[in-house]
Computed example of a mutant assay.
Amino acid sequence: MLIKLAEPGFGAETANFRQTGTRTQCADASDSAYCLASWRKAGAPPAVLWFGNSQLTGINRYGPGDLNAPELLRRTLAQRGHYLVTYSQPNADLTEQTIVWNATAPAYRPKLLILPICYDDIRELGVRDTVADFVDRPAVMARLRAQSYWPLIAGAVQQSAKAGAPPATGHASIQTTVDAAATRFLRDHWALWRDRDALRGALGFVTHILRNELLGIHSTSKRPVDTSIYADRLALLDGLVADARAHGTDVLLYVPPYRQDIDGPYPMAQYRGFKRDLQQLAMRHGAGFADLDPIVPGPEWATVTDAVFGFKEPDFMHFTAAGHRRLAADVDRATRRLGY
Rank of each mutant, 00 (worst) to 15 (best):
L240S: 12
G63Q: 14
G63I: 08
T104N: 10
P110E: 08
G286I: 06
S30E: 07
W193G: 07
A182L: 14
Q19C: 05
A47Y: 00
L234V: 12
D261T: 09
T220A: 11
N102A: 15
T95L: 10
K4V: 10
G288N: 06
W101P: 04
F289G: 07
L5N: 12
K162P: 01
T227D: 13
L210T: 12
G339T: 04
G164L: 10
L281Q: 09
T20P: 02
P90I: 00
R211N: 14
D66P: 01
R325E: 14
L278K: 07
A33Y: 00
A182K: 13
L215F: 06
I122H: 10
I262A: 10
N16V: 06
I295D: 09
R194E: 15
P267I: 01
A78Y: 05
Y83I: 04
R223G: 05
I229P: 08
P110I: 04
S221W: 02
D306W: 04
D136F: 11
A78K: 05
I174M: 14
V131Q: 01
Q158M: 11
D120N: 13
V251K: 01
D195P: 01
G310Y: 14
S148L: 08
A307W: 11
A329P: 01
G201C: 00
V85E: 05
T335N: 11
Y34D: 11
C35H: 02
P106V: 07
C118H: 01
P166T: 05
P138V: 06
L144H: 07
R336V: 15
G288H: 05
D263A: 14
M283A: 13
E124W: 03
R337T: 13
N60I: 07
P151S: 08
H82V: 05
D250A: 15
K275Y: 03
F51A: 08
Q79Y: 00
Q175F: 08
A33Q: 11
H324G: 09
L5H: 15
G155M: 00
Q25V: 06
P64F: 05
H218I: 10
A78N: 03
D277T: 06
L234W: 07
G63Y: 02
A154M: 03
I209F: 07
T24F: 02
P138R: 13
T169N: 12
S32K: 02
P138N: 14
A198D: 13
Q55W: 07
F309M: 13
I99P: 06
D243S: 15
D243P: 09
L281N: 05
A105L: 02
K41L: 12
S30R: 02
P46E: 03
